[in-house]
Structures are given as C-alpha cells and as structure tokens.
Amino acid sequence: MAEAPPRRLGLGPPPGDAPRAELVALTAVQSEQGEAGGGGSPRRLGLLGSPLPPGAPLPGPGSGSGSACGQRSSAAHKRYRRLQNWVYNVLERPRGWAFVYHVFIFLLVFSCLVLSVLSTIQEHQELANECLLILEFVMIVVFGLEYIVRVWSAGCCCRYRGWQGRFRFARKPFCVIDFIVFVASVAVIAAGTQGNIFATSALRSMRFLQILRMVRMDRRGGTWKLLGSVVYAHSKELITAWYIGFLVLIFASFLVYLAEKDANSDFSSYADSLWWGTITLTTIGYGDKTPHTWLGRVLAAGFALLGISFFALPAGILGSGFALKVQEQHRQKHFEKRRMPAANLIQAAWRLYSTDMSRAYLTATWYYYDSILPSFRELALLFEHVQRARNGGLRPLEVRRAPVPDGAPSRYPPVATCHRPGSTSFCPGESSRMGIKDRIRMGSSQRRTGPSKQHLAPPTMPTSPSSEQVGEATSPTKVQKSWSFNDRTRFRASLRLKPRTSAEDAPSEEVA
C-alpha cells in the first residue's frame, strides 16, 4: 500500500521540484479525499487562508506561464504608474523644462484676455472677434484635454484613487474654476456660431469669465498662502490700524457733515460726507466734493493729517511682513540645501571615528588635552595620597570615625582645627580638600554678606603664586578674593596644593 505523501509545513519547496517556489498556508490543510486516503489533490490556500480556484496559477517567480503573465502585467503596471506620476508632476508640480508648457498656457490665456479687451473697442471689434473665435476653439481643445489628463493623473495619489477620489480631486477650487471656464468657452462658441440675436450679448458677457483663467496660473496657491501667512502673522497690528482709521473716518465725516450741510449742497446727507471722507483719507482725492466753510476746511485738514497716518499703516505693516517672510523662506531654502550635506558629513565622520582606533588626527579633542595637561583624576589621586601619608595610611573619614581611648597616647600629631565659614567644625583632613566650587561659593557668600568690609582692609600687593609662602596660607580663606572669576591669580592660587600645619609646630611643606 502506497504511503501518503508527508504533510509539508512552511514555505519550503517540495523535494524533486527545486526551481518551484510555492506559497503554502501556515497550517497544512488537505482535502477530505486526501485525509481519507483517496487520490485527491490537496486544496490550495492563499496567504489569508482563502481557498484558491482550481485553475488559478500559483503565485511565485517560477510558476510557469502564469508567472510570465504576472511579470508582464507587473511591468506594465509599473510603467503605467510611472507615467501617471510623471504627468501629475508636470501639471501640478512643474520643475525644470516642465515650465515651458505652463508658459505656453499663460501666453494663450493672456492673448485671449487681450483680444477680449480689444473686442470692446469699436475700431478693432470685428478683427478681434474673428481672432478670438479661432483662439477659443484652440483653448477649448487644449483645456478640455488638460482637464481630463489632470483628473486621470491624480490617481497617482492615494487620496485621489478610484471614482470617489477623482470626484474629490474635481471638487478642488482650481478644478472648479477650470470647469466653469470650459463651460463658458463652449457656451460662447455655441452662441457665436448660431448667428442669432443673442450671440452678441452672450459673447460680450461670458467672454470675461475667461479672466478666471489668470487665476489658474498659480494652481498651488503659493501667492495666496504667502499673503495669508503675512496677514495672520500681523493680524493684531492690522486690526488696530484699521480700527483707529475707521473711527477717524466716521468722526471726521460726521463733523464735516454738521459744518457743511447748510452751506454746501455736496454734503446734503451723511452718506455724501462718508464718501468724501473715504476718498480723502485714502489719499485718492477725486475733487467732486470739497468743503466751502472755514470750519469745514479746518476739520477736514486736521482729520486728514490724523487719519492718513492710520490708513497708511497697513501698507507699511504688510510690506515689512512680506520682507520678513521672504527672508525666512530664503533662510529655509539654505537650511534645506545644507541639511543633507551636513548629515552626510556627520555620518562619514562617525564611520571614520568608529573604524580608526588610533585617531591620531583628533588634535583638538579632550583626549588630546588630557594627555598634555594633568587630568583631574590625577589631581584627586594626588590629594588622596598626600592625605593618607599624613594620616598614617588612613583616609580622612576613617580618621574622624576612629575612637580614641581616654589616657591613651595619640598616634597622630595634634592638628589645628579649622572652621569653614557658615558651618560647624569639620575634620581637619578636609581643609585642604576644598575644591574650586567651594572656594568660589565661599567668595560669593563673603561678597553678599559684607562687601563694604573688603574695601576697608589695607590693599594687598598682588604677587605671583611662585613667590607666595606656603606656610602662610594655612586656610583657603587666605586666598585673595576677587569680584570676578576671570582673575588668573585667584584661579592659579585655588589650584595650588595647600599643606596642613599642626598647632604646635607648623613646618612648611611643599608638595611638588
């Protein structure tokens, strides 16, 4: 009796068929016929556990003709996506030579605008209408194809895939403007070719909807975003200037109206006075309405000098805001240009540092100066060695804690006790272990408590650290204090090793 083939788990290929790579489910599931010992083939499952149809090819690079078809379809799909992405970037994010197409579109729109203006002049109306009709045909074809291509290429973005995504893309403001202008152009052409009475009025009214094509030149909205950011950044200043200017306008108009309503027919109503105030304070000055009385002229002159300053403030605020924003954008561009080279330089330096163990090129690091100058660790070890030599091999803490019996001779020589300023008595072995921070803190506390006492003391002649007598400086308080830590004499004296002298005989010792 033939044995059933062993159940295979995992992703390994079956024996005897090495080139074939078959994806098997996580659990080997066989058909009921196979479990019962029949000759049925096992049921194939996909990666998600769903059964595959009987005629479906197995996924994998070596699955025969199905694999070749899959490779061809995958390559075609990649080319399709690449083309779609390229078209989308050309239309929505132009760079380099892609601006040539947008310059061509701008020339078409500008020519249409010029011809629309010439069509309103009686001398050039006939020729402009003929040229404009031909140009409209060209623009309908160009913009119609462009609109379709834009909607198709938007599928390269995830949020615009599918018919719902394309509809979302078509609802964008600039796409809506394109659609309105396209419909208006078709209506103008249809009305112009019919030759009816309505054609002339339709051409004159709907052609100027094509002015909206100038708005579509900035599809990404960079200028509007820049203007919005400047207004938002200086909103408080703008609101303040406009508010005060509006108050000056209504008060000036009302007072001039009261002064001129009886003697001047131009100011017969408050609305006429508001019109005069707006034209005057905005420095336009049509001259259609002028005050005639001396009181009205004085009020107009005073409020004009006051109001023009507030009406001119928004222009200066926006101008300075634009300058600052442009400078910030230039700085951001320079930062973006330098970020990648800086990151590459840091990575290269780290690779060199991690692979080169000698690091002989590091001549400006802490390790280099640590090898030249005595390190703080060596100074600490030197302090501890000196203290243990004086205390008979014991550390200062051990000397303080060691009990001394009554009447027993002390094995240590008597030492002079010292007192730290602002604290109780402490171990004499710690007097010379006072660090730089303690010395600086002690000097600052003395300056806070009594700076007036220092200038009363007789001035001391500054001497070099080499000429100081070591026996005289029994305490860190003898170090000359200065008002600034930048004094080199104080810094050098604080680094010197001060020996400890006994109370009975204080021989001067120098520590090399």
Rank of each mutant, 00 (worst) to 15 (best):
Asn85Thr: 06
Val103Leu: 02
Gly55Arg: 06
Trp224Leu: 00
Phe106Cys: 01
Ala28Gly: 06
Arg219Pro: 11
Gln332Lys: 11
Ile308Leu: 05
Leu113Val: 00
Gln332Glu: 12
Ala28Thr: 12
Leu135Ser: 14
Ser111Asn: 02
Lys78Glu: 15
Gly96Ala: 03
Glu32Val: 04
Ser41Pro: 06
Ile148Met: 14
Arg159His: 15
Gln122Lys: 13
Gly66Asp: 09
Thr200Pro: 09
Val114Leu: 05
Arg20Leu: 03
Asn129Asp: 12
Pro51Ala: 04
Ala187Val: 12
Val188Gly: 00
Pro94Ser: 02
Glu32Lys: 05
Ile197Phe: 00
Arg82Gly: 12
Gln164Lys: 08
Ser119Pro: 15
Cys69Gly: 04
Ala323Ser: 15
Ser185Ala: 10
Arg81Ser: 06
Ala184Thr: 05
Trp242Ser: 09
Ile180Met: 00
Ala233Gly: 09
Gly38Glu: 10
Gly10Arg: 11
Cys157Gly: 11
Ser268Thr: 08
Ala36Val: 05
Gly12Cys: 05
Cys175Gly: 05
Leu238Met: 00
Arg297Met: 09
Val90Glu: 04
Gly34Ala: 07
Ala343Gly: 08
Ile148Val: 09
Val176Gly: 09
Leu324Met: 15
Gly302Ala: 10
Gly222Ala: 15
Arg220Gly: 02
Val188Ile: 09
Thr280Ser: 03
Pro53Ala: 07
Pro59Ser: 10
Thr120Ser: 05
Gly70Asp: 04
Phe208Ser: 00
Ile211Met: 07
Cys156Gly: 11
Val231Ile: 12
Phe137Cys: 15
Leu9His: 10
Phe198Leu: 05
Arg171Lys: 07
Phe208Ile: 04
Glu32Asp: 07
Met340Val: 14
Ala263Ser: 10
Tyr101His: 04
Val176Ile: 13
Leu203Pro: 00
Phe143Tyr: 00
Thr240Asn: 00
Ser50Asn: 10
His77Leu: 07
Arg220Leu: 06
Ser41Cys: 02
Arg44Cys: 12
Val151Ala: 14
Ala21Thr: 10
Ala4Pro: 08
Val188Asp: 00
Cys69Phe: 08
Phe167Ser: 01
His102Pro: 00
Gly37Cys: 04
Ala128Thr: 09
Thr200Arg: 15
Gly64Asp: 08
Ala68Val: 09
Leu48Gln: 14
Gln210Glu: 00
Glu126Asp: 10
His330Arg: 15
Val90Met: 04
Cys112Phe: 03
Gln194Pro: 00
Val114Met: 07
His77Asn: 09
Arg95Gly: 08
Glu328Gln: 08
Ile180Val: 07
Ile308Val: 10
Leu203Val: 12
Val326Asp: 12
Asp178Glu: 00
Asp272Asn: 02
Asn89Tyr: 08
Val29Glu: 02
Ser73Tyr: 03
Glu328Lys: 13
Ile177Thr: 02
Ile121Asn: 06
Ala202Pro: 15
His77Asp: 11
Ala28Pro: 09
Pro57Ser: 10
Gly64Val: 09
Pro53Ser: 09
Gly195Ser: 04
Pro57His: 03
Gly10Asp: 09
Val181Gly: 00
Ala300Thr: 04
Gly221Cys: 00
Ala98Gly: 14
Ile105Val: 02
Pro59His: 09
Phe174Tyr: 01
Gly195Val: 01
Ile148Thr: 05
Ala56Pro: 09
Ala18Thr: 02
